[in-house]
Design a protein around this nucleic acid. Structure first.
Lengths: 246, 246
DNA sequence: TCATCGTATTGGTCTGACCAGAACAAAAAA
DNA sequence: TTTTTTGTTCTGGTCAGACCAATACGATGA
């Protein structure tokens, strides 16, 4: 069986194209279980490992869910796949920290605006809890860092935007380690404790007030001040009180 | 054989995690050629097909390039692979558009702020060119849409942020389709021509003035108005002049 | 020195096999 | 009849070993 009755595409590409076709034209819809690997292999005249490569590829794209001993089913595309992508992709850029931080600010500033419109009771509660924990863990680097993360995460979740949430989560993962080290600044600057607590409070208040403009401005200022602290730390300066944003 | 000396992840996950690790901590940098499939299989105690699945996965994520008979090399992440994802995702979940649009707005608003600080001559020129083309192609759906895209793209490029650029490009791809259709509104609303030209001009001016606040506000308003036009079109309304942002 | 040739190496693919759990239907028990 | 049990079958998950084709590179010959 030479069987190159089939034309151009070869191996993997053939299978992938075959499936993509059906996914694009609606032959395969979310919830559908597609034919078994073995049969697919036979139908397309390729080996099973090749079929599996294609299925794995679709899985990485979040298009398909491979359930052990059940089958491969089409699922509603989920951007959460971007998590792996961004984590890896952004890790390749040397000076990414600042770069990624800018993107994170972008995400959060948009999120907080949407949060002002869409936040529900549960969101306020989550923000409130995080706020309390920020105060309670102000002297602990690890727990404090986590509380801080949770607060910002809560903002994004309150935006009710899946895309923003995924992007934010991806970047947070990437920034996690620099966050931890940055968090040690708290030990250096006494005034930073006040800043951390008060500033988050102000952000929270703005959201509760459902004032997008104020919320965004406050959040931007929050980031700017944090950045200023970090800059000072880099210069080895001691504590000189709260920095002011230019 | 037993061989689960390590009971951690199994098969694919093991290989993928192994590579991801090295990619994240910098052991593997763009340009590096990673060990051959066969040896990788031996080292991790898995079969080659499994290794290939993992490599294919990384390839789908645009992290790695598999060169026939040469080897697998780490490349600078390329979002172009995400086009597959976007195409498929959109084909099955059209309601993603609004969600992604929000994220795009987030990116651009941050980008335009940075652009105000960092834009250089070349950036202004690119913006200028796009602006001219927007005016020149106002009656052409296809070319007009492209000019519009280029203008917004130019904003992001002027921010000099690679991360923002990558995110923006990813989402633009996804939105390209809806953009085109939305663009057909131009034929419907006479006033929209004015809006398209004037509004982009205002945005441009704000960047040239290097006024971040004004630039962001103008851009947000730009999106809001466009959204309003789209809403009207959905309602089948005729042209009633320029909409005002609430 | 330069051109040619081989061989080891690499990705690309195939075949056929085994495992373990899920599905489902037939058979046995209540 | 209803319930339980028991298989057989199907599925994905994995493996082993093999062949092909083209490349890289050193050895060989001109």
């Amino acid at each position: 069986m030479d069987a190159h009755a089939a034309e151009d595409p070869k191996g993997f590409e053939k299978v992938f194209a075959f499936l993509r076709e059906q996914l694009l034209d609606g032959t395969l819809k979310p919830g559908d279980r597609l034919i078994a690997e073995r049969e697919l292999a036979v139908q397309l005249g390729v080996s099973r490992p090749i079929v599996r490569e294609a299925l794995r590829a679709l899985h990485m794209l979040g298009i398909v869910e491979i359930r052990d001993r059940i089958g491969t089913i089409v699922k509603r595309p989920d951007i959460s796949m971007l998590k792996d992508f961004f984590a890896l992709a952004l890790a390749q850029q040397a000076d990414l920290i600042d770069d990624v931080m800018e993107a994170r600010i972008a995400i959060e500033c948009q999120a907080i605006r949407l949060a002002c419109e869409r936040a529900m009771i549960a969101d306020f509660e989550r923000l409130q809890r995080a706020l309390v924990r920020i105060g309670a863990t102000i002297d602990e680097a690890e727990a404090g860092s986590l509380a801080d993360y949770d607060f910002h995460r809560a903002i994004v979740l309150a935006s009710r935007s899946q895309t923003l949430a995924v992007l934010h989560d991806s970047m947070s993962t990437l920034l996690a380690r620099s966050h931890r080290s940055r968090r040690e600044l708290v030990q250096m600057f006494g005034s930073m404790k006040t800043y951390l607590i008060e500033d988050h409070r102000r952000v929270f208040d703005a959201i509760v007030a459902r004032d997008p403009d104020r919320a965004e401005v406050t959040l931007r200022r929050h980031f700017a001040i944090g950045d200023e602290y970090r800059r000072r730390a880099a210069l080895g300066d001691g504590d000189r009180g709260e920095p002011t944003t230019g």
